[in-house]
Design a protein around this nucleic acid. Structure first.
Lengths: 201, 201, 201, 201
DNA sequence: CATGAATGAGGTTTCATTCAT
DNA sequence: GATGAATGAAACCTCATTCAT
């Protein structure tokens, strides 16, 4: 975010928000706990973020921004469409696996109604990035063009979300990234153009 | 469910719960509003459901039970695996489209942490039903057996959830069921055994 | 007040309000302290009185009502105007001396601006009572009729207030009622008709 | 006072304090508003006056000092006791009428408890001045000597305060000073020695 | 068993006041 | 010395939840 304030406080708040909101449902998480854990005055939080939701959304925005940056970074130098998508898929699983708190917040505690109304939700940059790639694939006849590019994206995102959620629910030990390739091949078959004669492997 | 009380009240409560919880985030929905709309004292709700979450979960359980019944009903007489899965996919979209309030609650307002800890979440009957079918498909060599049956289920469920959510977010007019077949073909390609020589259509 | 609730709680609250607000300036008195001392939940106070000011004003109203009743009671059977006024003067001093907390609140801590806008302030019953007596005196030629009856009342009230306040400030041990007659004679000379030939004693 | 700073700022602050504190109850008046209106940082106020109360008391002290000076000035050349008191009475009404903000603050918003503990409250100079005159009158047999001189002062002060307050409450248009003589005659009768054979006029 | 009063927790606001620059 | 960020306290407000009837 653009909250131009004490970077130290910002850091402590970030950790506290991650901790508190990833461990309880939104309505059970207390802003007073966040303040206490962060060692910040309760008022300071309000001065900066205005509300419980504002606080959470501000950090979610930051985190998603970082994920976007990471994806962009990793896409560098990859030409092949399939490899691009594989990378995108992998980076997401990898990111959420390394920051499960973020995954929990994103997929499990964020109050949806509010988030949807928030600018953050759109994550235009990331979405735009994805859609661009997917559209190119459709035009090139590689990806299924019977549906909108948005639908292809929904398939990937839905699966990422579900996979992460079940990973948490089932308390799986096995690494997400370890399964990434296996899972991606399935995704790829869903997305790729069924009429395409090009071989899958 | 087990709330042995006046079916009339039960009906009014059901409608009220659907209305209130589908329109706001969980923490913004007020049990007093539910009571008022249902024309019941909030204390009565407490006596029966114990808590706000208990109330919501009880009805979610009922609704999911009905969905399960509906799926079972619709599967009758279908032999072909693909058709079975297509049906399962379609019934879900159809159900959520007709009861968007339920979809909203299920995918957007339920406090996840609590739900996950609740028996309801497991939806053993429905899940068991699905897994059984999927496992048969894997054994028959029709479905991809490189991954657990649960993973196959994740594809379906994740896509249903995402599709519904984006349908709400984008305020799409177009019917969900109308797109069902097109979407299902993607799912099917993801699930089916890539080595299978059997034709797709 | 008409707060139809638990008389026990009401009693405890009354004592607590008297204690807390008579010992600090209004802005230093905490509603939480009142709640704690009264052994009542903080929320309960808000449910009933709406605000810190509402709480105080409600009790002030009650107390002044009792003072009024007491005055009315004491006036019974007195015919002579001077004796009536002497009584009115004495009852007030006596009342505030016995409930110095009330005097402190009334004359020293009540936020004036708010009080003045409040129905309480007008104390219509008591004021009406006084004015009636004073007007009769003016018409009978006993009291000075060069000024409005309200001005005559100002002499009495102003002197009562100031006398009480200085009694507190000077931490005088001497009883207020003991001085009442001496003081009243001053008031009487101020109010009585200077042209009147009637003897003072 | 002792605030050795920029006379311009001092002037702006004085006006701001008068405006803000005369229009709301003390607890509703905000020091930030004062700062804003005066065009000063609120911290600067703190550096100089230490607290909200300190700020108000400092100015009240200044204002009362000016009133005292004015009274002293006006008493010059008056020998007759009655005329002296008449003057004192008149100057006060005149001053508060011209600076109603001061009257409001003094009689209606100042937190009493704090003020009473403050050196300012004693207003030793003014009080001493009055008491001296009153005592002389008592010794000369002109004023009632059945009560302490302080009591005589209480009578005057109480009436001034009450008169001003009711003038505000009743939103009277009529000038205070215009009624001053009529009112003073009543005061004089209250104060003067009842045994004195000297004529009243 | 249904009800509403009372409670306690915590979100939201506003401030006086303190602290570090 | 002047400033604004940060703090702490407390008013205010809404609720979920408990309790006594």
């Amino acid at each position: 975010m653009l909250d131009g304030f004490n970077p130290d406080i910002h850091k402590r708040l970030e950790a506290a928000v991650l901790e508190v909101f990833s461990q309880s449902d939104f309505h059970k998480a207390s802003i007073r706990d966040v303040a206490k854990i962060a060692g910040v005055s309760f008022s300071t939080i309000y001065n900066h973020y205005g509300s419980k939701e504002g606080l959470l959304l501000a950090f979610v925005n930051i985190w998603l921004g970082k994920l976007t940056d990471r994806i962009i970074d990793h896409l560098q130098g990859i030409e092949d469409l399939k490899e691009k998508l594989r990378k995108v898929f992998w980076v997401q699983l990898d990111y959420y696996e390394r920051y499960p708190g973020l995954g929990r917040i994103l997929f499990m505690t964020l109050p949806m109604k509010t988030w949807m109304d928030d600018e953050t939700f759109q994550q235009r940059k990331m979405i735009g990035l994805f859609l661009e790639v997917l559209r190119q694939g459709q035009e090139a006849g590689i990806l299924n063009s019977n549906v909108r590019a948005g639908t292809l994206l929904d398939f990937i995102s839905g699966f990422v979300q579900r996979t992460f959620t079940m990973w948490i629910v089932r308390e799986e030990q096995e690494s997400l990234t370890q399964q990434a390739n296996l899972l991606f091949e399935m995704v790829w078959r869903a997305l790729s153009n069924p009429e395409c004669t090009c071989r899958e492997k």
